[in-house]
Nucleic acid binder design. Structure first.
Lengths: 256, 256
DNA sequence: TCAAAAGTGTTGAGAGTACACCCATGA
DNA sequence: TCATGGGTGTACTCTCAACACTTTTGA
């Protein structure tokens, strides 16, 4: 199916395929080169950027729909994904704008079209392994790429607020849930993991205290190997202990 | 407007007044005689009970809609109200059942009617002063009353899960937010407030540690008076320091 | 006068924080 | 050999939990 056909289907059939006036937006976090990043889309018809989002099929739960959106954008399955808030401000929809945004070649929508209605949107955030993602475009977007958290471009509608709320939620969750596994590569060093935490929290942490704390959760396994090629003492490599990690996801973090 | 007319309007006009396939449910907590209570409705057409819920007007935010539902059921304005989760399981809707539930006198709905669709529901929880509430019926319900948390009757659809999730959220929030003000009367004693916390958490707390902790937040003001008429040392009366309380709501609880 | 429940204080364990010392590595 | 950054240990502080003693009240 061509992009045009896909788009035409969205315009024509959307109102019967999807739950009307309800959408979802995903804040997809990745981590690379000591930077926390967010996956953003640039729509063909707009100058500002957007969070990857989508609509909910009549026979899908929100969680399934979010996983589908994620899969479409990143190619990844089985991702850490959490609903965090539902956004319903009246100003968050802009029918006039929508009529422009969803115009393509000979296709036009009017104010009665389903896409020109007010939308309420359920926000999800996801944590993904940056190195395994190949950002993919959809029929409306011309660019799909990562942005550093400290240089986010102007976002459409209330997407900036959604992003901020996601980050706030993530920061709180950090205290209760193990979160590194989906963001880090298979093997990593303690300083690398620390950088992740520091970036999320936006504050520096004490190296030694961080190590003690994380190890106290017993969700890591230290490997024999060390990372070589660095101009100083070679740090140990760690991997997550998947079993323990899953337990901690269920029961929350606590000392042993 | 009679109940019948209200009902007829819901059936006939609902699809243009409200956002389709989206509803909200409120878990309304009250506290009385050392018991945490939840406000429940019994629909005329069903044997099980329901959380007070409603639909969202096209020009309302979720929060405004929830406040409206709350006002309709309790008569109260300006209530502590928090969105906590959006429920979208496929099994949570039951069109067959809906067709029966929304039948009244000569009115009938079929499977294409807006009320017989799948619904996604946004859950809110509210904390209200039990003594100020006069539960009010709507056009579909025959009873509206409080139930003790430990003797909740069978609830319709997934309302039991919604209630459980609300309670779980409330328990977590207890650590971050001051919550007594909306649940307690104007004046109360420390042991009374402690009972509230114990009931929410479902576990006994140490009297002395509790007092120290709560006072440490500086959100209470001790009055000169004591509660008299008790067969033991008369406890002090307290009230909330509204200014401090509001600050704590904004910034979270922390020691001074 | 006595049981019941409130007011107040102390102590110890554990978590979190701050900081010091030594070690390994490539330049 | 030296700057850089990692590995490990210790001491101090603060919070929280456990617990004891005294005071007030109506029965």
């Amino acid at each position: 199916m061509t992009e045009y056909e896909k788009f035409k289907q969205l315009i024509d059939k959307g109102s019967s395929l999807y739950i009307p006036q309800l959408s979802l937006d995903c804040v997809i976090f990745g981590f690379h080169q000591n930077q926390l990043k967010v996956l953003l889309l640039k729509m063909r018809t707009r100058h500002d950027w957007a969070l990857p989002g989508g609509f909910i099929h009549q026979d899908e739960t929100l969680e399934v729909a979010a996983a589908r959106v994620l899969k479409e954008r990143t190619g990844l399955d089985n991702i850490f994904l959490r609903q965090f808030h539902t956004f319903s401000a009246l100003e968050r929809s802009n029918p006039q704008q929508a009529m422009k945004d969803f115009a393509m070649e000979d296709l036009r929508i009017d104010q009665h079209h389903w896409l020109a209605q007010r939308f309420i949107s359920v926000g999800f955030y996801a944590l993904v392994d940056f190195t395994r993602v190949t950002p993919q475009l959809d029929e409306l977007s011309e660019i799909c790429t990562w942005y550093d958290l400290d240089s986010i471009p102007p976002l459409m509608l209330d997407h900036r607020q959604i992003l901020d709320k996601a980050l706030e939620t993530l920061r709180v969750q950090l205290n209760y849930q193990p979160i590194g596994m989906s963001l880090m590569p298979e093997l990593f060093t303690m300083p690398e993991l620390q950088k992740l935490y520091e970036t999320i929290l936006g504050t520096p942490l004490d190296r030694r205290n961080f190590q003690r704390k994380i190890l106290g959760y017993h969700i890591l396994r230290r490997r024999e190997e060390r990372r070589t090629g660095v101009a100083h003492k070679a740090p140990y490599l760690y991997s997550f202990d998947i079993k323990r990690y899953q337990e901690a996801l269920q029961e929350g973090l606590h000392k042993w």
